[in-house]
């Protein structure tokens, strides 16, 4: 079974390689009678038997007409589905156990066509291997369509293949496709509430206590040292508004005392790895919330003490992808 699935995926990778956007065509579309289609064929057989036994031409005519509808609906179903183009928008990061909303951009209009321009009917979208998905009505489409993807493990994940299927027009045939996209999802570890552990205090030296007490506004305690370009996430209180008013751009004041109260965050090796990472994640979030300056050590990966949004993101990214940080640190 496993083998079969693997070879199916290999075949799929060869047939529909990953891309950024898809215009569905004969290579990407699969089509097969749906359950109802088989039921319908059984009905046609029954009508044929009945019509023949009763020598009833009208019943036979009905049977053949229904068969012809079946044939024509094969083509109609395909040509309807082939009007679809799909791409994926920007994916936001999430924490473990949360759902990431994957934005799908569906375009049901054929650009170059003057014939039957739009695609009709409902499309159901789901990720391969997941049981739940969403239904999209092509006739009332608002882009992007958010398709939730539950994230259970931290790290960089390739998107599972996206399965789109349509039963339009009569439900006799199911057109579907399994699309692979280049996009990846970054899943942060699950933050778990804890206090700063003793190691951190140690690492932070005698300043830790001090720092915590005054972390809300270090400027009250320390002397101004220099100006530095403002970074998103820094407290607005540090912004040198006079300089801004003079038109010299957003700059923030740096204070000499700040360097000393640096906290160093480190992985707690005494507990299980995932737990430790979750705790560390909470600490990063917490310190960032108060705009505290902290350094970050995760194995061989070291981030110099800093604060602000990009620092936080770097830390989270490192936590998410540990122990393969090198691969993504940039």
């Amino acid at each position: 079974m496993q083998m079969l699935q693997q070879s199916f995926h290999r075949w799929l990778d060869k047939r529909i390689p990953a891309a950024d956007n898809f215009a569905l065509n004969h290579k990407t579309i699969f089509i097969f009678p749906a359950k109802f289609g088989w039921l319908y064929l059984a009905l046609c057989t029954l009508l044929f038997l009945l019509g023949t036994n009763y020598q009833n031409n009208l019943m036979l005519l009905l049977c053949y007409f229904l068969l012809a509808v079946f044939l024509v609906s094969l083509m109609a179903s395909y040509s309807n589905f082939a009007k679809l183009t799909v791409s994926i928008g920007k994916i936001h990061q999430v924490y473990v156990n949360d759902d990431v909303q994957i934005p799908l951009w569906l375009n049901a209009k054929q650009n170059s066509s003057t014939f039957s321009a739009a695609m009709h009917g409902r499309i159901s979208a789901q990720f391969m291997g997941l049981s739940s998905g969403i239904d999209v009505d092509c006739d009332q489409l608002t882009n992007p369509v958010a398709l939730p993807l539950p994230c259970k493990k931290r790290g960089w994940h390739a998107l599972p293949r996206l399965t789109l299927s349509s039963l339009y027009p009569l439900g006799l045939f199911r057109c579907w496709t399994h699309l692979a996209f280049h996009s990846r999802v970054l899943v942060y570890p699950l933050p778990l509430v804890n206090n700063l552990s003793p190691q951190h205090r140690q690492a932070a030296g005698h300043d830790a206590q001090h720092a915590h007490k005054h972390s809300h506004d270090p400027s009250l305690q320390h002397d101004f040292s220099h100006l530095k370009a403002y970074q998103t996430g820094e407290s607005l209180r540090h912004v040198a508004w006079k300089q801004v008013a003079k038109g010299r751009g957003m700059v923030s004041k740096q204070f000499t005392g700040q360097q000393q109260q640096v906290t160093w965050l480190e992985l707690d090796t005494t507990v299980e790895l995932e737990l430790a990472i979750s705790r560390l994640c909470f600490q990063v979030l917490e310190l960032s919330r108060f705009n505290h300056v902290f350094g970050f050590v995760l194995g061989s990966y070291v981030l110099d003490p800093d604060s602000g949004e990009s620092h936080r993101l770097n830390c989270l990214q490192a936590l998410a992808s540990y122990p393969n940080i090198a691969m993504v640190a940039n």
Partner: peptide, 12 residues
């Protein structure tokens, strides 16, 4: 769709 199916049905 039905119009398209009709000649095929008749032919059958």
């Amino acid at each position: 769709l039905s119009l398209q199916a009709l000649p095929i049905g008749l032919l059958l």
